[in-house]
Nucleic acid binder design. Structure first.
Lengths: 125, 125
DNA sequence: CAAATTAAATTACATCTGTAATCAACCATA
DNA sequence: TATGGTTGATTACAGATGTAATTTAATTTG
């Protein structure tokens, strides 16, 4: 039950794998090394740690390995965001939204999106 | 300009000091040690690290010290929450709210609060 | 004043994280 | 078949973090 803890760097690797479903180490290297200024070795380390933590499943494909997320993205997102909202805003979303807004971090389109969402939710109740 | 990085444990100390304005070490110990299962030494360490990071100001009051936040809570909240929303939801709030809602993490009162907030914001535009 | 108490500073140490070099196993080729 | 390249595994190492014991300096008390 204890949710797997993913570090910042590891989360970038997970993000990529979540996006593409699964990939070999070299695909991950190609996709992330340059952008993050990592060497190949660093990416390999992250993949390994993720594997050891049980966040990734590995399947042999000939001489190479294919990594696939075992940790469910939705679960992780919820864990992380719940944790932050709990820690920073006592678990309440409105203060967070308000905070964003009062610091000019809420664009018109964000607002529109939120309004649509709230309306939809209201209807559902 | 580099925003001060506060660890999880440190943030609990900051939270207390933000709430009460300022306090002596022993007041912080009394308030937090038990609840967090920390010894006095641990609290002192956290206070010291916070002081070294420049997150706290210290003022001597007779033989003891009074610790006061130098880091502004609002700034920190914004940094932390912006960081999370950026990392997890591409900087967009609506997906976060939607995510919460779809996992039953949005109570009726949260929703009401959000609705009120959105309306207020709408009016302001 | 010497001894005990208190409070802050220093030091400690294991784990986690970022970052990477090196090692080992497996293939392909000269 | 020996050699070198590819790929995953192991080892490394510094800085951050959680957690705390020890030391030192100041204070109160017998």
């Amino acid at each position: 039950m204890k949710s797997i803890r993913i570090s910042e760097a590891e989360s970038r690797v997970m993000r990529y794998l979540w996006d593409c479903g699964s990939a070999t180490a070299s695909e991950v290297v190609d996709a992330l090394a340059e952008a993050n200024d990592w060497t190949e070795a660093t990416v390999k380390t992250l993949l390994n740690r993720l594997k050891n933590k049980g966040a990734l499943a590995v399947r042999a494909d000939g001489r190479r390995y294919v990594y696939t997320p075992k940790l469910v993205r939705e679960d992780w997102l919820l864990d992380e965001s719940t944790d932050l909202v709990d820690r920073l805003f006592d678990g309440r979303l409105a203060p967070l939204v308000s905070h964003f807004s009062s610091h000019g971090r809420l664009s018109d389109s964000d607002l529109a999106e939120l309004r649509a969402l709230i309306e939809r939710l209201d209807d559902g109740r």
